[in-house]
Design a protein around this nucleic acid. Structure first.
Lengths: 337, 337
DNA sequence: CTGAAAGCGCTAACAG
DNA sequence: CTGTTAGCGCTTTCAG
């Protein structure tokens, strides 16, 4: 910086002003400084700047892992609004290691980002609350009770109802659900499924299988379901991957979808939109979730203390080609396996 | 820090020593300091530390976007070796905006990460070389000629041969290729396809269609291919998504894979492994690419000047259920459309 | 182990 | 606009 000032024949202070694009500099000098910086390959040191300013103008984002495209889209929404607000986004990923997420969070905290957005962390709530002591925290995809962390989630309960009621309205009575165990969002979807069934007087027809949200789980659960005494005419899967597994199994035993059996997924990943599947599914407004979360985070930076809020976004049913009325004949070929 | 020292009844210097876990501190005092820090909710300031140390012990990683799981796996490989070397990983994503990548790179440069890893950047080479002036740079998935940037890529040429020769060895003669236009890796794969065909005396049977690596492109190209005068008995698709589109189209017109037509993909994404597709494809060693790239980056940090290297990893053919010998009868039903 | 002192690269406030 | 003067929070050196 010293050198740049010298080359441009101005004071260090002026260089500083130019670097943070203050309006109080004449265009001519600004040009001169910029050019000098260019020539010397000068680039401001973010560490020093942040240290002196006491704010980083950046918000940290913690993703669980980079694999899941679901979070990718949320992250895109996040950075979209961050960028237009002049904020930088610092990503970190927890990865597979047990302590990964905790370490990544700690790292963000040490970097003193102005706020932190947690994408569906597997972290214990206590850790999240502790972090919020030091820096505004907003968590996406998981509701946390605390007096200082904001949350943005989608209404999984509504999503579960949407899916189940769609199937019921089509005339199905034997509707099974393959849930996601303890994965976030699974519980409310499952409860909504049961509630919807009950409301339709179908409580006795509930059948639930558990999966870990992998394709093979969907295959296995479906196989199991069809081997049961009272096989379903429709399956509400906990996510698209599980639905894909279910369809693959049905396909393998020659059952037609939706002719013989209807399938609904969850998440509306790009998988669901593929020709092969063309899956009816429940869509969460991913980009919107990201945008909202960042908006909230930015607000918190501006105004630290305020009541935290729980923003609940509504999911939507996307009807494609895997759902239809149940087959006429109630006796299906169950004895293949 | 002052406060921690006071509470623990020691000097600031000692606290500093404890914080960077120096071995020259008696366990008793260390305990005392740690506890004081805990009580006060003290957390070292990374900015200040890095500023004073002149190194950040972190390497920056630039991903083009968060959507592509391909890069996610590479990133996982990266952070795996970074973590065991005690380095932190700072992710940034270029996103969709035009200047996105350039800004993200600039941002990393300003943060003075000890090294930077670029994942298949769309950035102009000049920008990459310019960055390497300020900080060790390694780019993966793209070869850049420069006297100071290291590259790790996979041998797309070999991958193209592997796929084509597999099809040839199965007895196919009319093999078409759906490429990825100007996408990185496409050109060498296409050339390898043509070379392999030529070597087998099949030069006259080459047929190439272009796609932008989307599913619909695969569908369209296949439709086009089958409507041609001399439809192929096998298709080598530029990536798995295109292959999926091709299969969806074949499926829609009632053609069997691999009975009527064989399909090979590229990348071995999780799509390829799904029951529905069970796609024969070419796999790139993603995790290994990441590990290697980080290893190289870390080496460069230790020893700045050295000849840059181009590491080429070998892809492998993964044979699944979409390839088989060509149908006996050379006159296929071409008139559906 | 302690204490003091210098400095990392930049910002910010204030007279000129 | 310019120079100066203080730090930001931590590391490092060096003599006790």
């Amino acid at each position: 910086m010293e050198d740049v000032a010298a080359l441009a024949g101005v004071s260090r202070a002026l260089v500083s002003l130019v670097m943070r694009s203050s309006p109080k500099v004449s265009p001519a000098r600004r040009e001169r400084v910029l050019q000098a910086a260019e020539e010397l390959g000068y680039r401001p040191n973010a560490m020093a700047r942040n240290l002196a300013r006491r704010r980083t103008h950046s918000v940290g984002v913690l993703l669980h892992d980079l694999h899941n495209p679901f979070f990718g889209e949320i992250a895109e929404g996040l950075s979209e609004v961050a960028v237009i607000a002049g904020y930088r986004v610092l990503l970190t990923a927890g990865g597979v290691r047990a302590r990964g997420e905790a370490e990544a969070l700690e790292s963000l905290l040490e970097y003193r980002t102005d706020a932190i957005v947690l994408l569906s962390p597997a972290l214990p709530s206590a850790a999240v609350v502790a972090a919020s002591e030091a820096c505004p925290v907003v968590v996406v995809g998981r509701a946390i009770r605390s007096s200082q962390v904001d949350c943005v989630v989608t209404d999984d309960s509504l999503g579960g109802s949407l899916a189940t009621e769609h199937l019921i309205s089509l005339g199905h009575t034997d509707i099974a659900h393959i849930d996601g165990g303890f994965q976030p969002g699974s519980a409310p979807r499952r409860r909504a499924y049961i509630a919807a069934m009950t409301k339709a007087g179908l409580a006795g027809h509930c059948q639930v299988r558990t999966s870990r949200f992998a394709e093979q789980d969907g295959w296995d659960a479906t196989e199991d379901l069809l081997a049961a005494a009272c096989p379903p005419s429709a399956i509400f899967a906990g996510n698209d991957l599980v639905a894909a597994g279910a369809m693959a199994y049905l396909n393998s035993i020659g059952m037609e979808v939706p002719g013989d059996l209807s399938v609904v997924g969850y998440d509306n990943t790009y998988l669901a939109g593929m020709h092969h599947l063309s899956l009816t599914t429940v869509s969460q407004p991913r980009a919107e979730m990201g945008r909202l979360a960042m908006t909230v985070a930015l607000e918190r930076i501006g105004d630290q203390r305020q009541e935290p809020v729980l923003h609940t976004l509504a999911p939507a049913l996307v009807v494609r080609a895997t759902t239809g009325p149940p087959p006429r004949c109630q006796t299906r070929k169950l004895t293949d396996e």
